[in-house]
């Protein structure tokens, strides 16, 4: 006794002058293990061939398919309809520029932000192809990996109060990324250098501590812990700077 699912899907094509924002409704028989990935593709193939949405890996590791599912940002590929009510409302992620329907431009947003926070290993050293690799403790490698698990899906940004109000806020993703580089001895930046990048209202001090970023993170990254550590560290650097100025 399968359910007949009702999908309310946001529609708008910014490239079409005749298009107006609206909600279209589709119906689909529920099948076992039905995910939003399978459902949306079925709707596109059988009911509305122009429907826009994004998937790539369809296994929750590429971060393409973030959308607002019944009011909550999440990855569509790992959302099963059996965990949702019979009526399912899908909206594009806010904050990011709309490409059309459920598709948003996360690529440009993340690239811009990653460039702003200089998300790479900073070193003066040159790679020597003949040399043995620099040693590292396995526990440290694992700790770096834990923070590097972020897939830049944009759910934390879409759920963030500050990011929704202020275009220049870098978001939990970027602060977690900085926390990852602080851990990494290969990155030669010092606390004062990180402070330049995120010791501001656009960075760590813009966070209002609403915790939604961690709640919606599909990778379950402990964002609030990382933000807390970073906030204390940056506050300390900020205080030092004040004392230096007054000394």
């Amino acid at each position: 006794m399968s359910r007949k699912l009702k999908f309310n899907i946001f529609r708008y094509n910014p490239e079409d002058p005749k298009s107006v924002p609206r909600t279209d409704t589709y119906y689909l028989e529920e099948t076992p293990s039905l995910s939003l990935f399978i459902a949306l593709n079925k709707i596109r193939e059988d009911q509305d061939s122009g429907l826009q949405f994004d998937f790539a890996c369809r296994m929750a590791i590429c971060g393409s398919c973030g959308m607002v599912i019944n009011g909550r940002p999440g990855l569509a590929c790992k959302t099963l309809t059996k965990d949702l009510p019979q009526e399912i409302t899908l909206m594009p992620l806010p904050v990011f520029k709309l490409v059309g329907d459920l598709s948003v431009d996360t690529g440009t947003w993340f690239r811009t932000t990653n460039t702003k926070i200089e998300s790479w290993v900073h070193t003066e050293a040159e790679f020597d192809p003949q040399a043995l690799e620099e040693r590292m403790e396995n526990d440290l490698a694992n700790a770096i990996f834990e923070l590097e698990r972020c897939i830049e899906c944009g759910c934390c940004v879409a759920s963030c109060g500050t990011a929704n109000m202020r275009e220049d806020f870098v978001g939990a993703f970027a602060l977690n990324r900085i926390a990852r580089f602080i851990l990494d001895p290969r990155d030669k930046r010092r606390d004062a250098d990180y402070f330049e990048v995120v010791g501001t209202d656009q960075g760590i001090f813009g966070c209002m501590g609403l915790l939604a970023c961690e709640d919606v993170c599909p990778r379950e990254i402990p964002l609030q812990d990382q933000l807390g550590i970073l906030r204390r560290k940056m506050a300390f650097v900020g205080l030092k700077n004040i004392f230096k100025k007054h000394a």
Binding site: V121, F127, E133
Partner: peptide
Amino acid sequence: PIAAREAAFWGVPWNRVV
């Protein structure tokens, strides 16, 4: 092996021998 070490140099947190 050179490519793997180069990736380490660029920040890949390879698991390490214990």
